[in-house]
Protein backbone atom coordinates (compact mmCIF):
# COMPACT_ATOMS: atom_id res chain seq x y z
CA UNK A 1 0.00 0.00 0.00
CA UNK A 2 2.45 2.52 1.20
CA UNK A 3 4.86 1.91 -1.64
CA UNK A 4 2.26 2.12 -4.34
CA UNK A 5 1.82 5.89 -4.33
CA UNK A 6 5.45 6.91 -4.48
CA UNK A 7 6.09 4.48 -7.30
CA UNK A 8 3.24 5.97 -9.26
CA UNK A 9 4.51 9.43 -8.56
CA UNK A 10 7.99 8.54 -9.70
CA UNK A 11 6.57 6.90 -12.78
CA UNK A 12 4.64 10.00 -13.66
CA UNK A 13 7.66 12.20 -13.01
CA UNK A 14 9.67 10.28 -15.56
CA UNK A 15 7.32 11.57 -18.17
CA UNK A 16 8.30 15.13 -17.27
CA UNK A 17 9.52 17.39 -20.08
CA UNK A 18 13.09 16.95 -21.31
CA UNK A 19 15.67 19.10 -19.53
CA UNK A 20 14.78 17.67 -16.13
CA UNK A 21 17.94 15.54 -16.13
CA UNK A 22 20.07 18.62 -16.79
CA UNK A 23 18.57 20.21 -13.71
CA UNK A 24 19.69 17.27 -11.60
CA UNK A 25 23.23 17.60 -12.81
CA UNK A 26 23.27 21.31 -12.15
CA UNK A 27 21.82 20.72 -8.70
CA UNK A 28 24.49 18.15 -7.94
CA UNK A 29 27.14 20.59 -9.08
CA UNK A 30 25.84 23.19 -6.65
CA UNK A 31 25.64 20.70 -3.81
CA UNK A 32 29.10 19.31 -4.53
CA UNK A 33 31.25 21.80 -2.58
CA UNK A 34 29.12 21.41 0.52
CA UNK A 35 29.06 17.65 0.00
CA UNK A 36 32.86 17.47 -0.21
CA UNK A 37 33.17 19.56 2.94
CA UNK A 38 30.63 17.39 4.69
CA UNK A 39 32.44 14.20 3.66
CA UNK A 40 35.93 15.47 4.53
CA UNK A 41 35.15 17.29 7.75
CA UNK A 42 32.19 15.30 9.06
CA UNK A 43 31.78 11.80 7.67
CA UNK A 44 35.46 10.84 7.40
CA UNK A 45 36.44 12.06 10.90
CA UNK A 46 33.37 10.34 12.35
CA UNK A 47 34.26 7.04 10.72
CA UNK A 48 37.91 7.39 11.70
CA UNK A 49 36.89 8.32 15.25
CA UNK A 50 34.78 5.18 15.44
CA UNK A 51 37.69 3.12 14.10
CA UNK A 52 40.11 4.66 16.63
CA UNK A 53 37.75 3.76 19.45
CA UNK A 54 38.75 0.13 18.84
CA UNK A 55 42.46 0.88 19.10
CA UNK A 56 45.18 1.87 21.52
CA UNK A 57 46.48 5.12 20.08
CA UNK A 58 48.78 7.83 21.44
CA UNK A 59 48.71 9.90 18.27
CA UNK A 60 52.45 9.84 17.75
CA UNK A 61 52.88 6.13 17.05
CA UNK A 62 50.51 4.07 14.82
CA UNK A 63 47.24 2.85 16.41
CA UNK A 64 47.08 -0.75 17.62
CA UNK A 65 43.78 -2.60 17.30
CA UNK A 66 42.57 -3.73 20.73
CA UNK A 67 39.01 -4.82 20.07
CA UNK A 68 36.44 -3.87 22.70
CA UNK A 69 39.02 -3.03 25.41
CA UNK A 70 38.20 0.69 25.41
CA UNK A 71 34.46 0.01 25.71
CA UNK A 72 34.95 -2.50 28.49
CA UNK A 73 37.10 0.04 30.33
CA UNK A 74 34.45 2.70 29.77
CA UNK A 75 31.67 0.61 31.27
CA UNK A 76 33.87 -0.04 34.33
CA UNK A 77 35.14 3.55 34.66
CA UNK A 78 33.37 5.34 37.53
CA UNK A 79 34.72 8.71 36.32
CA UNK A 80 32.98 8.20 32.97
CA UNK A 81 29.63 7.46 34.59
CA UNK A 82 30.05 10.37 36.94
CA UNK A 83 30.90 12.60 33.96
CA UNK A 84 27.73 11.48 32.23
CA UNK A 85 25.70 12.23 35.36
CA UNK A 86 27.31 15.65 35.82
CA UNK A 87 26.75 16.50 32.15
CA UNK A 88 23.07 15.51 32.34
CA UNK A 89 22.62 17.61 35.48
CA UNK A 90 24.23 20.55 33.70
CA UNK A 91 22.07 20.11 30.57
CA UNK A 92 18.85 19.94 32.58
CA UNK A 93 19.70 23.10 34.53
CA UNK A 94 21.14 24.96 31.58
CA UNK A 95 18.45 24.13 29.02
CA UNK A 96 15.58 24.34 31.46
CA UNK A 97 16.44 27.84 32.62
CA UNK A 98 17.64 29.07 29.28
CA UNK A 99 14.57 27.98 27.37
CA UNK A 100 12.08 29.44 29.83
CA UNK A 101 13.99 32.73 30.03
CA UNK A 102 14.48 32.91 26.26
CA UNK A 103 10.78 32.28 25.69
CA UNK A 104 9.82 35.06 28.08
CA UNK A 105 12.28 37.48 26.47
CA UNK A 106 11.14 36.53 22.96
CA UNK A 107 7.47 37.00 23.79
CA UNK A 108 8.22 40.36 25.41
CA UNK A 109 10.14 41.42 22.32
CA UNK A 110 7.20 40.36 20.16
CA UNK A 111 4.31 41.68 22.20
CA UNK A 112 5.66 44.64 24.15
CA UNK A 113 8.37 46.39 22.17
CA UNK A 114 9.29 46.87 18.56
CA UNK A 115 12.55 48.68 19.25
CA UNK A 116 15.48 47.23 17.31
CA UNK A 117 18.14 48.51 19.71
CA UNK A 118 16.43 46.79 22.61
CA UNK A 119 16.39 43.56 20.62
CA UNK A 120 20.07 44.13 19.88
CA UNK A 121 21.00 44.52 23.53
CA UNK A 122 19.55 41.12 24.32
CA UNK A 123 22.08 39.59 21.96
CA UNK A 124 25.20 41.30 23.34
CA UNK A 125 26.36 38.57 25.76
CA UNK A 126 26.45 36.22 22.79
CA UNK A 127 29.13 38.43 21.22
CA UNK A 128 31.49 37.62 24.09
CA UNK A 129 33.50 34.47 23.52
CA UNK A 130 32.94 31.56 25.90
CA UNK A 131 36.51 31.72 27.15
CA UNK A 132 36.35 35.44 27.91
CA UNK A 133 32.98 35.04 29.61
CA UNK A 134 34.38 32.22 31.75
CA UNK A 135 37.45 34.23 32.75
CA UNK A 136 35.44 37.32 33.61
CA UNK A 137 33.03 35.33 35.75
CA UNK A 138 35.94 33.49 37.36
CA UNK A 139 37.17 36.85 38.65
CA UNK A 140 33.74 38.20 39.52
CA UNK A 141 32.95 35.08 41.53
CA UNK A 142 36.34 34.59 43.20
CA UNK A 143 35.83 33.77 46.87
CA UNK A 144 38.12 36.41 48.34
CA UNK A 145 38.90 38.92 45.62
CA UNK A 146 35.79 38.80 43.39
CA UNK A 147 33.40 41.72 43.21
CA UNK A 148 30.45 39.33 43.38
CA UNK A 149 31.51 38.08 46.78
CA UNK A 150 32.49 41.57 47.91
CA UNK A 151 28.90 42.63 47.21
CA UNK A 152 27.54 39.61 49.08
CA UNK A 153 29.80 40.42 52.03
CA UNK A 154 28.79 44.08 51.83
CA UNK A 155 25.14 43.05 52.13
CA UNK A 156 26.06 41.19 55.29
CA UNK A 157 25.69 37.78 53.66
CA UNK A 158 28.23 34.95 53.75
CA UNK A 159 30.62 34.70 50.84
CA UNK A 160 29.77 31.89 48.43
CA UNK A 161 32.37 29.54 46.90
CA UNK A 162 30.57 29.66 43.54
CA UNK A 163 33.12 27.76 41.49
CA UNK A 164 34.95 25.90 44.23
CA UNK A 165 32.21 23.98 46.04
CA UNK A 166 30.62 20.84 44.68
CA UNK A 167 27.12 22.14 45.44
CA UNK A 168 27.43 25.41 43.55
CA UNK A 169 29.79 24.65 40.73
CA UNK A 170 27.40 23.14 38.17
CA UNK A 171 24.56 25.63 38.82
CA UNK A 172 27.11 28.46 38.50
CA UNK A 173 28.50 27.17 35.21
CA UNK A 174 24.97 26.58 33.94
CA UNK A 175 24.01 30.15 34.81
CA UNK A 176 27.12 31.63 33.19
CA UNK A 177 26.20 29.85 29.97
CA UNK A 178 22.53 30.81 30.27
CA UNK A 179 23.69 34.42 30.50
CA UNK A 180 25.72 34.01 27.34
CA UNK A 181 23.25 32.04 25.24
CA UNK A 182 19.83 33.23 26.32
CA UNK A 183 19.80 36.18 23.91
CA UNK A 184 20.62 34.04 20.92
CA UNK A 185 18.01 31.45 21.88
CA UNK A 186 15.49 34.23 22.41
CA UNK A 187 16.24 35.51 18.92
CA UNK A 188 15.61 32.08 17.40
CA UNK A 189 12.29 31.84 19.22
CA UNK A 190 11.48 35.41 18.28
CA UNK A 191 11.91 34.49 14.61
CA UNK A 192 9.44 31.67 15.19
CA UNK A 193 6.98 34.04 16.82
CA UNK A 194 7.03 36.24 13.71
CA UNK A 195 5.63 33.28 11.78
CA UNK A 196 2.43 33.23 13.83
CA UNK A 197 -0.18 35.31 11.96
CA UNK A 198 -1.27 38.46 13.80
CA UNK A 199 -4.87 37.62 12.87
CA UNK A 200 -4.94 34.76 15.37
CA UNK A 201 -4.10 37.16 18.19
CA UNK A 202 -6.69 39.68 16.93
CA UNK A 203 -9.31 36.93 17.00
CA UNK A 204 -8.20 36.09 20.52
CA UNK A 205 -8.51 39.71 21.61
CA UNK A 206 -12.01 40.00 20.16
CA UNK A 207 -12.98 36.92 22.14
CA UNK A 208 -11.64 38.69 25.25
CA UNK A 209 -8.61 36.44 25.93
CA UNK A 210 -5.91 37.77 28.27
CA UNK A 211 -2.18 37.95 27.29
CA UNK A 212 -1.46 34.95 29.50
CA UNK A 213 -4.29 32.96 27.99
CA UNK A 214 -3.20 33.85 24.46
CA UNK A 215 0.36 32.82 25.38
CA UNK A 216 -0.84 29.42 26.56
CA UNK A 217 -3.43 28.71 23.89
CA UNK A 218 -1.99 30.43 20.83
CA UNK A 219 1.73 31.12 21.17
CA UNK A 220 2.90 27.85 22.68
CA UNK A 221 0.99 25.46 20.39
CA UNK A 222 1.84 27.38 17.23
CA UNK A 223 5.45 27.80 18.29
CA UNK A 224 5.95 24.10 18.95
CA UNK A 225 7.86 23.16 15.76
CA UNK A 226 10.30 26.08 16.18
CA UNK A 227 10.62 25.49 19.90
CA UNK A 228 11.43 21.84 19.40
CA UNK A 229 14.04 22.71 16.81
CA UNK A 230 15.59 25.25 19.17
CA UNK A 231 15.59 22.63 21.91
CA UNK A 232 17.30 20.07 19.73
CA UNK A 233 20.05 22.52 18.75
CA UNK A 234 20.58 23.88 22.26
CA UNK A 235 20.52 20.46 23.94
CA UNK A 236 23.16 19.16 21.54
CA UNK A 237 25.25 22.27 22.21
CA UNK A 238 24.70 22.05 25.94
CA UNK A 239 25.91 18.43 26.04
CA UNK A 240 29.18 19.64 24.59
CA UNK A 241 29.90 22.15 27.35
CA UNK A 242 33.68 22.45 27.56
CA UNK A 243 35.27 25.90 27.52
CA UNK A 244 33.63 27.25 30.65
CA UNK A 245 34.71 24.18 32.59
CA UNK A 246 38.21 24.16 31.12
CA UNK A 247 38.75 27.79 32.10
CA UNK A 248 36.90 28.09 35.38
CA UNK A 249 37.20 24.77 37.21
CA UNK A 250 39.14 22.15 35.21
CA UNK A 251 36.64 19.57 36.34
CA UNK A 252 36.90 20.34 40.05
CA UNK A 253 36.21 20.36 42.90
CA UNK A 254 37.16 16.66 42.75
CA UNK A 255 34.97 15.43 39.87
CA UNK A 256 31.91 17.58 40.44
CA UNK A 257 32.26 19.59 37.23
CA UNK A 258 34.12 16.96 35.21
CA UNK A 259 31.69 16.98 32.30
CA UNK A 260 32.03 14.40 29.55
CA UNK A 261 33.67 16.64 26.96
CA UNK A 262 36.28 17.83 29.45
CA UNK A 263 37.02 14.28 30.56
CA UNK A 264 37.41 13.22 26.93
CA UNK A 265 39.76 16.13 26.29
CA UNK A 266 41.79 15.36 29.40
CA UNK A 267 42.16 11.69 28.54
CA UNK A 268 43.13 12.51 24.96
CA UNK A 269 45.37 15.54 25.20
CA UNK A 270 46.50 15.24 28.81
CA UNK A 271 47.12 11.52 28.94
CA UNK A 272 47.61 10.67 25.27
CA UNK A 273 44.93 7.96 25.34
CA UNK A 274 43.21 8.82 22.09
CA UNK A 275 41.69 5.37 21.67
CA UNK A 276 39.82 5.53 24.96
CA UNK A 277 38.88 9.16 24.32
CA UNK A 278 37.44 8.15 20.94
CA UNK A 279 35.40 5.41 22.58
CA UNK A 280 33.88 7.95 24.97
CA UNK A 281 33.25 10.30 22.05
CA UNK A 282 31.37 7.53 20.30
CA UNK A 283 29.34 7.01 23.48
CA UNK A 284 28.52 10.72 23.52
CA UNK A 285 27.49 10.46 19.86
CA UNK A 286 25.17 7.58 20.70
CA UNK A 287 23.64 9.48 23.62
CA UNK A 288 23.06 12.55 21.44
CA UNK A 289 21.50 10.52 18.63
CA UNK A 290 19.09 8.84 21.03
CA UNK A 291 18.17 12.07 22.82
CA UNK A 292 17.67 13.95 19.56
CA UNK A 293 15.53 11.17 18.14
CA UNK A 294 13.37 11.06 21.26
CA UNK A 295 13.03 14.84 21.30
CA UNK A 296 12.12 14.86 17.63
CA UNK A 297 9.42 12.28 18.15
CA UNK A 298 8.01 13.65 21.40
CA UNK A 299 7.69 17.20 20.12
CA UNK A 300 6.47 16.16 16.67
CA UNK A 301 8.96 18.67 15.30
CA UNK A 302 8.20 17.68 11.72
CA UNK A 303 4.60 18.86 11.70
CA UNK A 304 3.02 22.22 12.39
CA UNK A 305 -0.42 23.08 13.73
CA UNK A 306 -0.55 26.21 11.62
CA UNK A 307 -1.72 24.59 8.43
Amino acid sequence: MATATPTQQQASRRKAPTGYRDDTRLALLFILPALIGFAVFMIWPTLRGIYLSFTKFNLLTPPKFNGLDNYIRMVQDPVFWNALKVTLYYVVLNIGLQTVLALVIAVMMQRLTQKTWLRGIVLTPYLVSNVVAAMVFLWILDYQLGIGNTILAGLGLDRLPFLSSDTWVIPTIALINVWRHVGYTALLIFAGLQLIPETVYEAGKIDGASEVRMFRSITIPLLRPILSLVLIITVVGSFQVFDTVAIATRGGPVDSSRVLQFYIYDVAFGRFQFGYASAMSVALLAVLVVITFVQYRLTRAESSDLA
Partner: peptide, 12 residues
Protein backbone atom coordinates in the same frame (compact mmCIF):
# COMPACT_ATOMS: atom_id res chain seq x y z
CA UNK B 1 26.28 17.54 15.98
CA UNK B 2 26.88 13.82 16.07
CA UNK B 3 29.82 14.11 13.73
CA UNK B 4 31.29 16.94 15.73
CA UNK B 5 31.05 14.84 18.84
CA UNK B 6 32.71 11.78 17.37
CA UNK B 7 35.26 13.74 15.42
CA UNK B 8 36.58 15.49 18.51
CA UNK B 9 39.79 13.52 18.69
CA UNK B 10 40.71 14.27 15.11
CA UNK B 11 39.01 17.57 14.51
CA UNK B 12 40.62 19.28 17.47
Amino acid sequence: AAAVAAALAIGA
